[in-house]
Nucleic acid binder design. Structure first.
Ligand SMILES: [Mn+2]
Ligand SMILES: [Mn+2]
Ligand SMILES: [Zn+2]
Ligand SMILES: [Zn+2]
Lengths: 143, 143
DNA sequence: ATCCTAATTGAAAAGACTTTTCAATTAGGA
DNA sequence: TCCTAATTGAAAAGTCTTTTCAATTAGGAT
């Protein structure tokens, strides 16, 4: 099931939040691309839908949407991060290092490795953060 | 082989850098704990060895040491990060979410998972970033 | 041991990004 | 349509990092 403005808006309402023009503009921006967007980029794109969308509102909206798992922060190679629409639950992202296209991987294939780490270190493992970088199918053909 | 001030200093020299008092102070600070330290924390600890160690110098020194793989940034849960001494090569870290103690895992047990991701997505995988969080052996006993 | 010079330093300023404050506006139920 | 709490944008404040630049320092050459 692909996210649409309607499904996303519905999730906002289900969590008791108002569906405002600025919030719609943020959703429009995120829906317009599969790449992570910075708050400033979201503002710029969002102003096509809500002309005076403020950067402060973008920050507040992203914080809100992150809480209800509508968006997820993505750490890029240089450490700073952008935001992408997310499906709920535990996922990982593969990011093209050339064009920044993101594909979400649902599920987690790291169980065995984490068990090994637990035995090796004596830690009780409670979570992990994984970002995978590579070249997308398109970018492999563009040297 | 555990890192000492002498081995670390030697590595700086081998890369053609001067061994200055401020740089020694940063190494002292990093050697004094197994937890990730922020630039400000490194400055505070380092001033025990070099009284007027400046924060700007800490930033410059960390950048330098990161280039020669003497230190590594560690992303904490809240996104900001600290630095720890690192062994060269590909490693991962396990961080205690209560006391922040870090253990380094050398090697990488994710080959199979990354192959799966490559097949699933069509991406050519070139790198990954993984941080594991948990409770260290000590902290498991302290509710 | 002393000199010399490029590397390095700290303070101050600038810059980038994020959060707080607050009066005005708005969504959506009554 | 009215009402009110939620939400908004602008401005200010705050945090963290980088740049600039004159002064200092490490370490090789004498
Ligand atoms: Mn996982
Ligand atoms: Mn690995
Ligand atoms: Zn690409
Ligand atoms: Zn612990």
């Amino acid at each position: 099931m692909t996210a649409t403005l309607e499904t996303l808006a519905q999730q906002l309402r289900e969590h008791g939040h108002k569906l405002t023009q600025p919030r719609c503009a943020v959703l429009h921006a995120l829906l317009s691309t599969a790449k992570p967007l910075s708050p400033a980029e979201i503002q710029a794109l969002g102003q096509g839908f809500c002309a005076d969308l403020g950067l402060v509102t973008v920050y507040r909206t992203l914080e809100l949407m992150e809480e209800i798992e509508l968006v997820r922060p993505v750490h890029l190679a240089d450490g700073c991060h952008g935001y992408v629409l997310a499906t709920p639950g535990h996922t990982h992202h593969v990011i093209c290092e050339r064009c920044h296209a993101v594909i979400e991987i649902s599920g987690c294939g790291m169980g065995d490795f984490l068990n090994f780490v637990a035995e090796r270190t004596g830690y009780r493992i409670t979570g992990h953060w994984l970002e995978i970088s590579g070249l997308c199918a398109d970018c492999q053909h563009i040297p």
